[in-house]
Design a protein around this nucleic acid. Structure first.
Lengths: 230, 230
DNA sequence: GTCTATAAGATGATAGAC
DNA sequence: GTCTATCATCTTATAGAC
């Protein structure tokens, strides 16, 4: 009610039947997403989320239980959407191409749902992708969370690329994917590093610049590693 | 004295004239490095470091001032060593090749100091590289720390690659480096993700498998993005 | 559902003895 | 240099009123 009425930040899913004073739940998730993506799990306090979302800490525990469960809810909320859409785009691509599957085409189908939302999905999606980038690099538990969340889609991509490169060994495909995963998640993290490195010439939020380059780079890399020619 | 006598963890630099009861300072740095690399800055407490290093929390503040300064000391300790050596290997490579500089050769000179230590440098170096990977993906302050610490060496690499690809634009070189940076730091993070993804076929600590593949992948990527042919 | 109040413990940091 | 003791604050989480 009186709280959160100024909340105009990214919402996910349907536009809310009563959009003015929407869910406290969604407001909490949005704020938590933003904080976790910048400071990591341990760098955020429940109080901080509560204050920013203009609710009480007790309400966060009422909705989510523990801080850990809040984090998991944040991480899963958009993962399900992205995973479903990635499966669709890859299925549609394969169905449309038949035997003409290419590495570039497979990568485009895999990346499109992410890059489209990175460009046009609003701050909520951008925060989410930065969070995925951070989790992906977290030694202690990040790899395990990534595995649990995204592996089915990754295997679908690898199968698709294997159709374009039938001679490729499994090892080479997995290593190549690992390199792609690093490139992508660093790009998603939007640390501003490339901005500073290039002294303002490049911008980490420039998806138009990113998309054709990451596809070209990764496709050539896959071919070189898996088939010995790019 | 009575503390830390069982400390056999990674030391850096010379083997210590009195190796039995070496520095408390070094012991603190080693432990902090290991913890920070796994859990990030906020996921580690000064107490935890003190207990594991078998010293008192007051001693950590005596040596380093604040927790933040301890972190900075950890991050800089090995950065200086790596930066100096990378400059040497790249200078030596360029001097030896004259006009025959290749992308693969430049990348090899850039990566060798890191990959050699990742393979043979012991747990201290492995922890350190995992920490760099984590910092690299940290939205809030990671990009800034990476810039401050590693930019001169990165510019040296980009200049070297530009000699091999004279037609390349600055934008394409920076974007390509960004992809390489992501691939490398994810590999350094050793999250075990590729182990699980490949169901045990690949191992994230297998530097023998990593090195030729990351060079081949990145070189082909640079060529495709910067020159339009791989 | 949402709040107030508060328990129960952990945290970074310092003063001061030895 | 290294320790003990301690402060002031912050933390997650819950009980219970409305």
């Amino acid at each position: 009610m009186k709280a959160r009425q100024a909340m105009t930040t990214a919402k996910v899913g349907r536009p809310a039947k009563d959009s003015r004073e929407k869910d406290a739940r969604a407001a909490i998730l949005d704020v938590a997403e933003e904080r976790f993506s910048r400071h990591g799990f341990h760098g955020v306090t429940v109080r901080e989320v509560a204050t920013t979302a203009q609710v009480n800490t007790a309400l966060i525990h009422y909705y989510f239980g523990s801080k850990k469960e809040l984090f998991d809810a944040v991480f899963m909320r958009r993962a399900e959407i992205i995973n479903a859409e990635r499966m669709e785009t890859m299925n549609a691509y394969e169905a449309g191409e038949g035997d003409g599957v290419t590495v570039e085409g497979a990568l485009e189908a895999f990346l499109r749902p992410v890059l489209t939302r990175l460009a046009d999905g609003g701050p909520g999606w951008r925060n989410y992708f930065a969070l995925v980038g951070l989790v992906n690099a977290t030694t202690a538990w990040g790899g395990e969370v990534m595995t649990r969340t995204f592996d089915p889609v990754i295997h679908r991509l690898i199968d698709l690329i294997a159709r374009a490169l039938p001679e490729a060994s499994k090892e080479d495909l997995y290593w190549s994917y690992n390199f792609l995963s690093g490139s992508l998640t660093l790009s998603l993290a939007e640390t501003g590093r490339i901005d500073r490195l290039s002294d303002g010439l490049c911008h980490s939020d420039d998806v138009e610049a990113l998309k054709p380059r990451i596809i070209a780079y990764a496709a050539a890399g896959f071919r070189q590693v898996c088939v010995g020619k790019a």
